[in-house]
Simulated scan of single mutants.
Amino acid sequence: MTRDALVFYSPVDDPRAWKEALTSELPDLDFRVDPDVGDPATIDYALVWVPPTGFFQRFPNLKLVTNLGAGVDRLVRRDDLVPVPISRLSDPGMVALMTSYVVFAVTRYARDIHIFERAQRRGEWHYVHPRPLFEIKVGVLGLGELGAPAAQTLAGMGFDVRGWSRTQKDLPGVACSAGPEALDNLLASCEIVVSLLPLTPESRGMLGARELALMPKGAKFINASRSAVVDEAALVAALRSGAIGEATLDVFDIEPLPADHPYWTLDNVLITPHLASITVPALAARDVAESIKRVRRGEPPLHAVDAHRGY
């Protein structure tokens, strides 16, 4: 009896950890790591992260593609992928890591840690009186699988949290809104703004020079979603002028970030190398296995992606 076969591709994830975790859930699964795929026509499933152009052309009999992350912008609207179900990961480890990153970045600004870091480099004892967290308005853009837990955690810490999403959400402790006018209002009212927006045709370039100018002078901006939701040149200009006072950035138009990029020269930018949230195989494998089982039964996978919406 021929076993179902899965091809694994990722430039950053550990295939050994994934093989161990996934085959413990599905012992009958033939786990293959690209490029050692054997006969491509025998591949039924793909578990991938940022596969290169043309990757899927080799596999004519795919039944399911699972993305090794929450953002699926690299999978939708590809010309090498025939219409098959696409699922994204949604594991508690990934959610916890993203929430911890957002809490760190927001708290670093709320407690003036960035000011103390500079003072230490100058060898100065520089006191700034702490502010109560309820005075600090934090806007979270994107209230999906990652954004909603982050927003609610911040609210639980005592921050004044406002959330914005494409469609109206209802989250305890978070003032939720939707629509273009509401986005303008949120940007104008929050001193710290966190982007956890998925990259879709609608969100691409959503935060341009006009939107950044709406934010209070000296506002802090955190991006842990996709770089392309922001006009990078406009953000650089706003950071240079002080219109945006500080930024914590985990995602960039080109990665790794080129050595000559202006972000490296800006003292008011904290750069992290796209690690705000990663998948944890031991926790995520159960969902991947369940999606495969569902597809075998002719059912939709878990966390199915709407290719038209882009998430």
Rank of each mutant, 00 (worst) to 15 (best):
R166M: 14
A110H: 04
R32C: 06
H308V: 15
T42A: 09
D28M: 06
S10K: 13
M215G: 02
L214D: 04
T66H: 03
Y9D: 00
E181P: 05
G245P: 14
R121E: 04
L26A: 03
R78K: 02
D231I: 11
T99K: 10
N185I: 14
P301D: 06
R226A: 05
S24W: 02
G163A: 07
R296H: 09
P130W: 11
R309D: 01
T167G: 06
S277R: 07
T279G: 00
I222A: 04
L235D: 03
R131G: 02
N268T: 10
V72A: 12
V280S: 02
D73N: 09
R122C: 00
S87E: 05
V140M: 04
Y45A: 05
Y45L: 10
P281Y: 10
V138T: 01
A276N: 12
F116Q: 12
D112Y: 15
L22K: 09
E124I: 15
A175M: 06
L186P: 10
L171I: 14
M157G: 01
P130G: 00
L239N: 10
G123T: 10
G179T: 13
G123V: 13
P281D: 01
P149L: 11
L75H: 05
T248W: 08
L196T: 07
D13K: 14
M157R: 11
S87V: 01
P262V: 08
A41I: 10
V161F: 07
G38F: 09
L270Q: 09
P27E: 03
